[in-house]
């Protein structure tokens, strides 16, 4: 147990000292959100309808910036190899890495998405489902990102995003639908429950698969 708390601490230290890891996604998110009204229209009625989808897609795309970070640096300096050889529970280590990555790359975006509600004229009753669906949906996306990152380690190819984005489709659908439901006064709790179910269902599978994918690089 002490081993894992130490890893958790180490990961937090690494991420907090490397500001680029969380500034990148945040800057990308803010820039894209402010580009939409310029590129599409500044008419509140148009933006209001598009806002749920735009915010969700932007969050999805900004995670693309950070998912390579989960394993790539540890791969380059060789510490992944040490972790693999340590004999400890690898799934748990991967889970810690994903969690810390989520805290530093997704949590700031979720907080910032409060402002995007005002920038894109999303009605205020959409704020609650937006935040809840992001809080529950982004961990699933981070899981897919970790799997894609583990598979495409050391290569700068399109394969990672090409794998991750189609997998994230259900989360995107359920997330935007939850917001649209609340705007139409429909109960959105079923969507949140489904998002939670997807997260719980995929968590063990993806952790297992990511560990398998990591081991592939050290045959």
């Amino acid at each position: 147990m002490i081993y894992f708390t130490k890893i958790l601490k180490k990961e937090f230290l690494i991420y907090s000292r490397k500001s680029s890891s969380f500034i990148g996604p945040v800057v990308f998110f803010l820039i894209s959100i402010s580009l939409y009204p310029i590129g599409i229209s500044n008419d509140p009625d148009i933006l209001k309808n598009l806002a749920p989808g735009l915010i969700w897609i932007t969050v999805l795309l900004s995670t693309l910036i950070s998912f390579q970070n989960i394993f790539s640096e540890d791969y380059e300096d060789g510490s992944i190899e040490l972790l693999l050889a340590s004999g400890q529970n690898l799934s748990l280590i991967v889970l810690i890495k994903i969690f810390v990555n989520w805290v530093f790359s997704c949590l700031p975006i979720i907080i910032l998405s409060v402002f995007s509600v005002f920038l894109l004229y999303l009605p205020l009753e959409g704020l609650k489902p937006l935040i809840i669906s992001l809080l529950i949906g982004t961990p699933t996306i981070c899981l897919f990102g970790a799997l894609a990152g583990a598979l495409s380690l050391g290569k700068n190819s399109i394969t990672g995003p090409a794998l991750m984005l189609p997998l994230s489709l259900p989360v995107l659908i359920l997330g935007t639908q939850a917001i649209n439901y609340s705007l139409n006064d429909i109960n959105f709790s079923s969507n949140i429950l489904l998002l939670t179910a997807i997260l719980i269902f995929l968590l063990p599978i993806i952790l297992f698969a990511s560990v398998g994918a990591l081991k592939l690089h050290f045959n």
């Binding site: 598979l151 189609p166 489709l169 259900p170 659908i173 359920l174 639908q177 997807i198 599978i205 698969a209």
Partner: peptide, 25 residues
């Protein structure tokens, strides 16, 4: 081959979820 097998299995786990969620959407 192992990497592709992992992706394929993750895909087949996810495909019913995609199908259902697309239906709802």
């Amino acid at each position: 081959d192992t990497a592709v097998s992992i992706i394929t299995l993750i895909g087949v786990v996810n495909l019913p979820i995609v199908k259902k969620s697309v239906d709802w959407w």
